[in-house]
Structure formats: structure tokens, C-alpha cells
């Protein structure tokens, strides 16, 4: 490292160097010294500014570094984007699931009401007719009564009560040994009252068609009277047995 610098070889020379150092450090009020000082002020200012700048982490970063950071944050953002979309989907499905649940519940309740009416497990009321079959001669046969029921069903009867018994799909009308009529094993006595919920304008003519239910009753020696009513109450219900052998196919 001896590029032009004379290494002091004697204590005198050493002293001279220290003397020069003292000279250098002594303030001298010359223009050049002033300019040197000014430059040093600028340098200190620049150092301070640069130190502060470097604190702002990104501003001093090189291009590659910035690219890497940008890339990283881009990837991070993409990941968050994906996560956001996923959560949005989850939220959406949860929301719609909630709506679906409510809808499904309403639909199920409606369906239950319908099925209860069809199965005859709950009382019902509505527009319909009340048919009274008088049988003074006890000549009305089970098949005639069944014919009346079938005719009503064909005419769109929704709920039928015969005497005190709710007529459902499995209802049987039979005759016991002494000639009395049994509906589902219950004895019914004349006059037989059939309470029907359905469209009176359809059911009434259906019973009265020539050769139809009314005529069969008349042929058996009975009379059939029909009264249309705005509100027919059907209070009889049937108990459903748990199916023993059948299972629902899902």
C-alpha cells in the first residue's frame, strides 16, 4: 500500500505527521476551508437522507428485489383471491342452503297436509255435499253403497265420510251375517249419511246420471238425497298402522 505515501521512518517524521494532523484539525477561516466544510455539510445531509431513505425498506431496494417482492405479493394476493372465492362459495352455499331448508320445510308441510287428507289421519272441511240415503226397506246392498262411493271418487271427491267412518283407500264395505252394513268393520245404520268434500257442481250430477248411483239406490228400494253445502266438516279420522313389511325405496 505504498502508493505515493511516505511511511515515516524516524520519530521526527512521525512527529511531523501528527503536527500536520493537528494543523488539519485546526479551523482555518479560508475560502477553500469554507467550501470543504460546505461539501461536508452536503455529505452529512446526504448520509442522513440516505439513512432515512433506507429505513423505508422498499425505496432502496434493487430492481430484482422489487420484482421478487412484487412477484411474492402477487402470488400472495392470488392465494388470498382463491381463498376469498372459496369462502364466498361456502357462504353462498350456506345462504342458499338456509333458503332451501325453509322452502323444503314449507313444501314438506304442504305435502304432509295433503297426505294427511288423503290418508284420512286428520279432520278436514271444505265445500262439498252431504248425501243421505234413506233405506226404509233395508234393501240397499253393500255393493250399491260402494257404487255410490266410487261414483263420488270418480267425480273428484277429496274426503269422504260414510256414517261415522272416514272412507280411505283401504276402506271396505261389507255385510254382516244379519244383513247389516259394515264399513271397515263398523256397523252403520240407515239412513246412511255420506259427507263429501269436493266440487258439488260435479259430484251432484255425477250421482244423478241415469243408471248411476242414485238409480242403483232407488233400484234397491232406497232414496238418495243430495244437499250441497258451503262447509262440510269431516271429523272422522283413521288410525294408520305402522307398515310391518314394507319399506320405502330411497
Amino acid at each position: 500500500m505504498s502508493d505515493g505515501t511516505r511511511i515515516p521512518e524516524s520519530p521526527e517524521q512521525q512527529k511531523a505527521v501528527w503536527h500536520r494532523l493537528r494543523d488539519t484539525l485546526r479551523p482555518q477561516a479560508t475560502w477553500s476551508q469554507l467550501i470543504v466544510g460546505l461539501l461536508c455539510v452536503l455529505l452529512g445531509l446526504a448520509i442522513a437522507a440516505q439513512l432515512r431513505q433506507t429505513d423505508d425498506s422498499l425505496e432502496g431496494a434493487s430492481q430484482q428485489e422489487l420484482l421478487r417482492l412484487l412477484d411474492e405479493s402477487g402470488r400472495h394476493a392470488a392465494g388470498l383471491e382463491v381463498e376469498n372465492a372459496e369462502l364466498d362459495r361456502t357462504l353462498e352455499s350456506l345462504r342458499s342452503g338456509q333458503g332451501d331448508d325453509a322452502e323444503a320445510r314449507t313444501a314438506a308441510e304442504e305435502r304432509l297436509a295433503n297426505l294427511e287428507i288423503i290418508a284420512g289421519t286428520s279432520p278436514a272441511h271444505g265445500r262439498g255435499i252431504v248425501v243421505s240415503i234413506a233405506d226404509p226397506a233395508s234393501g240397499v246392498r253393500a255393493s250399491t253403497l260402494l257404487g255410490v262411493i266410487q261414483e263420488l271418487r270418480n267425480a273428484g271427491a277429496e274426503v269422504i265420510q260414510l256414517g261415522t267412518v272416514r272412507v280411505v283407500a283401504s276402506t271396505s264395505i261389507t255385510t254382516d251375517p244379519s244383513g247389516r252394513l259394515l264399513v271397515d268393520g263398523t256397523v252403520i245404520a240407515a239412513p246412511y249419511t255420506v259427507r263429501v268434500i269436493g266440487d258439488p257442481e260435479v259430484m251432484e250430477p255425477a250421482l244423478r246420471i241415469p243408471g248411476g248411483a242414485a238409480d242403483s239406490v232407488a233400484a234397491d228400494g232406497g232414496t238418495l238425497a243430495i244437499a250441497a253445502e258451503q262447509d262440510v266438516e269431516v271429523t272422522a279420522t283413521v288410525e294408520l298402522d305402522e307398515p310391518e313389511h314394507s319399506e320405502v325405496v330411497k
Partner: peptide, 22 residues
Amino acid sequence: MIAIIGLIVGVVLGIVVQPDVP
């Protein structure tokens, strides 16, 4: 000496003023 003083003054000035580098 002026150089050292100048340096110190500059640093202090930079910290106090907080100049924005263009």
C-alpha cells in the same frame, strides 16, 4: 476540523429537516 464540524452539522441538519430525496 471544519470538515468534521461540517459533517456533524450536515447529519444533524439531515435528521432535523428530514429532506426528501428527489
